[in-house]
Design a protein around this nucleic acid. Sequence first.
DNA 1: CGGCTATTTGAATCCATTCAAGGGGAGTGG
DNA 2: CCACTCCCCTTGAATGGATTCAAATAGCCG
Lengths: 236, 236
Amino acid sequence: MELSRDPGAASGRVAAPTLHVRLTDADAIPFPTRTIERGDALYCAGEALRSLYTVQSGCFKTVATFPSSDDTNAPHTQVIGFHLPNETLGLDGVCTARHESDAVALETSVVRIMPVGILEPLCREYAAMQHELLAIMSAEIVRASRLALMLGTMPARERVAAFLLDFFERFDASAASSTEHATDVLLPMTRADIGSYLGLELETVSRMLSKLQREGAIGLNGRQVRMVDRAILAHN
Amino acid sequence: MELSRDPGAASGRVAAPTLHVRLTDADAIPFPTRTIERGDALYCAGEALRSLYTVQSGCFKTVATFPSSDDTNAPHTQVIGFHLPNETLGLDGVCTARHESDAVALETSVVRIMPVGILEPLCREYAAMQHELLAIMSAEIVRASRLALMLGTMPARERVAAFLLDFFERFDASAASSTEHATDVLLPMTRADIGSYLGLELETVSRMLSKLQREGAIGLNGRQVRMVDRAILAHN
DNA sequence: CGGCTATTTGAATCCATTCAAGGGGAGTGG
DNA sequence: CCACTCCCCTTGAATGGATTCAAATAGCCG
């Protein structure tokens, strides 16, 4: 009854287990799906938590809003996550039974809907499923902590580089097809989204991307990004 | 089998449920305790995850280390949490079965040790306990996301103010004794710790604290902080 | 009493923001 | 099909907030 295996996740990123990949039992359950158009919200902060969602295709951003200390000022708002296929949405709402953030589709996307009322009993029945849900939530804690670490310690250039490395890695992971690394990806989000996520202004993101291109780390054509030299990107 | 209640947590902070407060059944279980001296680590990043811990008394900081992109440079390191009595430590390790951060006692502290090998079966037996564990983990996700939001969007003064408000609130929550708000607290951490947590230099923290004192928001005497005017603190 | 660490405060520097302007691509309607 | 508009992106220049460097004070422990 040991907590977790996960040999491959030694030092680098945290593996992102998902309820439907690992648990073939769950695949037998007729969880419905839903299609969300680009720009539409899957859920909004404050709504009652009904389900957790697994991204089947497409991409989402989650946006957190902090009730500004000063009422007269605009509340602080920030993108706190991007979610690719096989990643789970809604975990932050379990504690209050209300969603704590907005989830907005960056392109037309499909999610699998897992009602929490079904999920919890299921987890009590199947040890593996319970363990997996706990692991997913833990991974989300680690992800959020890493974001905080990035925002707290890295200069702009490094943040953008780290974002790109992470995105390429997760893009590979979500494309279950080949074992190859993608060299080209099309970013589904705007510079403003990236900036919000990284705690930077969109101009700064644009500048750093341009700089990374000049340095020969990446190729750049609008939202199309080509990985040219991982070492340059990684090496500060 | 609805996910969570928690009437009081409408808009403000997230309630921090704890395994031993809510589950009287669990109190019957002879979970051992352990005393950690100031400066010593309860666990370190990379260690195998054996247990989760609930702070009984004292205070911890958790420190995350990011394997610096550039090997020649020092790795990025940051305090990503402070943990007061009744709060749970170790949740970030569930996903990889290894601790993802160091937990260091800021003063002599006592923790209750809950072996994960016991916890998981227990949660499958008791629905309330499973729900509670999920809620705790979810609250941790929200906490980490809030930290990221703070680091990504707030100027220095606001971060320090938010830190103080949060600390006072949690200090009250951890002192189960009275229903009164504490007006005086003794911060267990250094300015450097606070700065690391807030993504600021220790000098900046000191400056902002001084400024808040000049503005009449707080009284300050070393690590002794008196809450004078919450409104000033909250208003920008 | 020293020696140490923690804290405060000042002054100069720097990185990211802010303000501003121009280019480019997608979609719409004439 | 082209013109028009809207949004997104890029780049430059000036500003500003936080850092860095530096020095002095306060507090704690042996």
